[in-house]
Design a protein around this nucleic acid. Structure first.
Lengths: 359, 359
DNA sequence: CTCGCATCTTGAATCGATTCAATTTTAGCG
DNA sequence: CGCTAAAATTGAATCGATTCAAGATGCGAG
């Protein structure tokens, strides 16, 4: 006689209490603090629960009373599958998972590509706080999160708003590291594959335009690249920049652009591993060897880079650590806004080498 | 004067109503059904909300009343990072994501390796239903989910309990497909790398022992393999089986076992792509070419298989479709238990070929 | 001026539990 | 047996909203 779902109307704690002839409060204690109830009574209540088919306190009631939900929300302005498909997201989520596992919290994925839906989802998410993935223009999402009045941490949020808790890396330093690595190897003809300056932008760009880019990660990385380029005494005007959408099509367009000239670059700085991986592929198809003919440096440090052909030299963000730290910040939130910068690191693998001699 | 979090005590809808001089009900309508409230009143309430810093109805209250949470729980008995690290889980989650995106539902990850914690998490998860990943012995988790009295669907649940909604593949047919592919190519010396028969089991095993395996996926796949083996007139006693924990160490132990004999197999049937990938690696290091010296067939159809060296022939489960369907079943649950079997498909890639001539 | 009909608003009930001060019961002890 | 301290139990208040029948208001027609 198995009864499942819908038909039976739910049994409440009050029903159990009545059936067992005890009060609300006592019945509640039986479940949440069994040690304060006399054995005899506890057993009576349990028996009544059993008979009525009561499954234990409904978390909804508990939650309303307690205020805490025991779940961390993670928000993006992407489809939900972003969390499982994107390598960067996955690495961060590994860290988030670890921190949540340790504290017994759950993870609630709150996300939608559609703005309307996203707003609704953020507003109605049952969570204790948000980790906000600030991709591109994160401010819309940050505003939504802030509206909830819950603690939240913005990951890689570009703006210096001191009222927003944020966790990021020093993009200038990271980019400088990448570019210095190339100049150190002796490269003098370098090209830059950039992320968007602002929403939807792509095509050839200039350093001047980059200075006013809306997305600060892009702006900072360009700045970092050029610090090293200037240090090495390279004419900045000789360094072409191509703005991509971080997808295959525009990245390839950028490469076409760079390599269709008389004196093509001997090295490409990519602002994401995604682009760097596309570049590796493009160069191979084009018959150019990496790092023999061209060196490639990525940015992010995703797992795919390590197993690419050749393994990718890149600037690794501490993705898992960021996820972990973000959760810790939320759980330990005490009203004080913190903004933290995490260490970024150059990982030298096989996609970079000195330029061909005599070029 | 930005005020964040903790200090300010929360503003309730009731406070807004009072401030605006309207009733509870009207204030509620302003937010949830603005069209029924006269413009003038609505603006007054909105203004009051603004002044008081009211962010909109608290989802907790709404949720308690509505009963619905608008989130699907996904449960496993693994650490949370399983969802982001495991290729099978990720593929399923892609499907889950898609279905949730379409219906505007969120995803709640409910998981813990620790049984105590897991039970608590399942019991207190704020979800409308569960997708249960039945890895190995899924029954503990299924029991937990059933206790909640919410609709749930067990993925790959081995038992034929008709009171449990389940979604799976025909393991017998899938395995038969894999083995038939090998026998069809002419292989006669085949070895089987099996998943666990029951919790923690590993080491050399026999067909007889497999018949009584607790995990039915394992049992069924072994059965399917042998159907094809018998069809081909191969002596089943000549087919070694090695039970692994689906990890690197025990899989390699199994391969050591198979290939340390005089007349090693010309083909290996692996009950998971994970094992097959380890096998590819092991064989390469051992100097055996695939598929020249040894053919390898996997099971699952994870993305890694397609880019392995060589690309892996495997039996592909419709992972994303399973995730999608599971969510649909939960959302459309009407009290009727359904058990569905999805199609499984042999994907022939480059890890299989006829055995070397004259062997 | 009144009646009828829409359209708004109200207020109480409900969702399902937890908490805690106050009260009752039990146990221990002289 | 009475008294007291300790332990167990009660019951009302609370968490924050939504819902809906019933009442109020406004407006136009007669």
């Amino acid at each position: 006689m198995v009864q499942v779902g819908s038909k039976t109307k739910p049994v409440r704690l009050a029903d159990v209490a009545r059936a067992a002839g005890v009060s609300h409060g006592t019945a509640s204690n039986v479940f949440s603090r069994p040690e304060v109830v006399r054995d005899e009574v506890r057993e009576r209540v349990m028996a009544a629960a059993e008979t009525l088919g009561y499954a234990g306190p409904d978390p909804r009631g508990r939650m309303l009373r307690a205020g805490k939900v025991n779940a961390i929300g993670v928000a993006t302005a992407e489809p939900l599958s972003y969390f499982f498909d994107d390598p960067f997201a996955r690495a961060v989520m590994s860290g988030v998972s670890e921190a949540c596992d340790r504290t017994g919290a759950g993870i609630s994925l709150v996300s939608a590509a559609n703005g309307e839906q996203l707003a609704w989802n953020v507003r109605s998410a049952l969570v204790d706080g948000f980790v906000v993935f600030c991709l591109e223009d994160g401010s819309r999402l940050v505003d939504l999160a802030r509206e909830r009045g819950l603690p939240f941490v913005a990951l890689s949020f570009g703006q210096d708003d001191p009222t927003i808790a944020a966790l990021g890396v020093d993009d200038v330093a990271g980019a400088r590291l990448a570019a210095r690595h190339l100049t150190g190897l002796g490269h003098r003809r370098i090209a830059i594959l950039s992320l968007e300056f602002d929403a939807g932008g792509h095509g050839p760009a200039t350093r001047e335009k980059a200075r006013t880019a809306a997305y600060s990660a892009t702006r900072d990385r360009i700045a970092g690249y050029f610090e090293a380029i200037l240090e090495a005494g390279i004419d900045p005007a000789s360094v072409p920049i191509y703005e991509t959408l971080n997808d295959e099509a525009t990245t390839q367009a950028g490469l076409d652009h760079f390599f269709s000239v008389a004196n093509p670059p001997s090295a490409v700085l990519c602002m994401s591993d995604r682009m760097a991986l596309v570049a590796l592929d493009w160069l191979a198809r084009r018959g150019l060897s990496v790092p023999g003919d061209v060196s490639v440096v990525g940015f992010d440090g995703v797992a795919e880079g390590a197993v690419a052909q050749p393994p990718l030299t890149t600037v690794a963000q501490p993705m898992a650590a960021m996820g972990r730290r973000a959760v810790e910040m939320i759980l330990a939130f005490d009203g004080r806004i913190r903004r933290e910068t995490m260490d970024i690191e150059l990982v030298v693998r096989a996609s970079t080498a000195p330029p061909r001699a005599g070029v």
